[in-house]
C-alpha cells in the first residue's frame, strides 16, 4: 500500500470517527441534562459568580485533587 492510500484511509476513518464522537457528544450533552445527571447550563454561571469569595459551581474536592493532572 503506498502512502497516498494509507493517507486516504486514515483521513476517511479518522474523520468518520470524529464525526461519530461529535454526534455522541451532542447526545451526551442533552441526555445527561434530561436524565438529570448533569446540567451543563450551570457552568455558564462560572463567569457570572467569579469573585474569589464566591462559592465555586463545582468545588475541587480533596479526593479529586490527588488524581488531577497538570
Amino acid at each position: 500500500m503506498d502512502i497516498a492510500t494509507i493517507q486516504a484511509y486514515a483521513y476517511f476513518f479518522f474523520t468518520g470517527f470524529l464525526v461519530l464522537v461529535l454526534y455522541g457528544y451532542i447526545y451526551h450533552l442533552y441526555s445527561s441534562e434530561k436524565k438529570g445527571t448533569r446540567d451543563y447550563e450551570k457552568y455558564g454561571n462560572i463567569a457570572l459568580n467569579d469573585e474569589v469569595t464566591d462559592k465555586p459551581v463545582e468545588k475541587v474536592s480533596d479526593n479529586e485533587t490527588k488524581n488531577k493532572e497538570a
Partner: peptide, 22 residues
C-alpha cells in the same frame, strides 16, 4: 467571558458553546 459578565446574562446555551468548540 466578557459579554456575559458585562451584561449579567449567562451564555445563551453552554452546550452549544462546547459543541462549537470541538
Amino acid at each position: 467571558y466578557f459579554l456575559p459578565k458585562e451584561s449579567g446574562q449567562a451564555v445563551y446555551s453552554y452546550k452549544l458553546s462546547l459543541l462549537s468548540f470541538w
